[in-house]
Design a protein around this nucleic acid. Structure first.
Lengths: 200, 200
DNA sequence: CCGAACCGACAGACTGGTCGGTATGTCGCG
DNA sequence: CGCGACATACCGACCAGTCTGTCGGTTCGG
């Protein structure tokens, strides 16, 4: 074994601890308001350790983005690929993205609030991957439109942006301690999306 | 007249210039990334001038929030009050908020991205006014539900959050130089909202 | 089989620069 | 002469990133 199993404690590796604490702190107070010193103290390591694993504070933020993008894309791809009619797949995809979002609210707060903190290069990279994600989702909508299952008076592109806007906004009002759980909310949101797409 | 009309130049007053430049810069680069020095230079004044009219950098940000909240609330109130059936009023309100949002994209970027930069007191104040705004909008939805014009399987609260999420997200993808103008987009968005509310 | 060279993984002090806010001065106008 | 409306120099705090050092393990030549 290398070192992944356990040493004295079962705590995760240093980079993982940094990522976890960074996510929590950046979501809570904003990227610029969290100092590197504070972050490493929260993770129980030192600056030396952080700069050993990440080239900059920016790099740490980017790592959070990559984790989110990868998670979302893999979940959506899985749903798109599996069979079933397009209505079912779109409903499942919509409900799943809601569930995943409320399960990772901190990630989403950071995602939408801190994009402009990344270097232009990395912003482009994030936008590129995000676009691919949108396009995969949109392909479902377009499929339904072609089949005549969905109305096509409103461009698929607009519908998708409309829906993802709602998702984005979840990080501003959804509270995990409320009465509404993620699965229930996912049902509502998926129903709203499909209702607005219902063919006449 | 006091001083509002004109002096030598026709340029707006110092506080107005500060507000305008602050809005542009905060939206472009984020509150924490704009230094007071840079801001006052952009507005063509000095720090002394700024701290004469605003008690802090925070205070300037709060002034932007107040302007946005007031504008939105007054527009919505006007639409709600005028007659017409509930479908028409909701459609008009929805289309108008889209139009107002794309006409003031910088304001909205700041609104959603920088809320956590305000002091807790002022955050509460903003949230309070924002809630009142949501509730007024929601009252339209509830009215339609009571009358049976709208479906009521999904709570009005959820529907409103869903819709305002889409609005919020506009600041992330809508580009004024694109092919879609605000009025057209407002139609689409209002149609989507009403479609998702259509009674069976 | 052993010791020396080496290496990855940190620790922690330090630095150059920046920033929000303040204190004091000035100037024109009533 | 007094006061509102600024101008400007300045300060203390803080912060990202760097640099040098340390230490436990691994490798490798003899």
């Amino acid at each position: 074994m290398t070192q992944s199993a356990e040493s004295t404690t079962v705590s995760p590796s240093v980079p993982d601890r940094l990522l976890a604490e960074a996510t929590r702190l950046f979501a809570q107070r904003g990227f610029d308001r969290v100092s590197v010193q504070e972050l490493v103290e929260a993770a129980g390591v030192t600056k030396g350790a952080m700069y050993h694993y990440f080239t900059s504070k920016d790099d740490l933020l980017f790592a959070i983005y990559q984790r989110v993008l990868q998670l979302q894309m893999s979940r959506l791809a899985q749903i798109v690929e599996r069979g079933g009619d397009v209505t079912e797949r779109l409903h499942a995809a919509a409900a799943d993205v809601v569930k995943t979002t409320v399960d990772n609210l901190d990630d989403m707060v950071i995602f939408f609030r801190s994009l402009h903190m990344l270097s232009p290069d990395r912003q482009r990279e994030v936008r590129k991957e995000r676009r691919a994600y949108h396009e995969l989702f949109r392909s479902l909508v377009e499929e339904g439109m072609r089949e005549g299952v969905f109305q096509d008076k409103i461009p698929a592109d607009i519908v998708v942006n409309y829906f993802f806007g709602s998702i984005h906004h979840l990080s501003m009002w959804y509270r995990a301690d409320g009465e509404l759980d993620g699965a229930q909310l996912g049902e509502y949101y998926a129903d709203l999306l499909l209702a607005s797409l219902r063919a006449d």
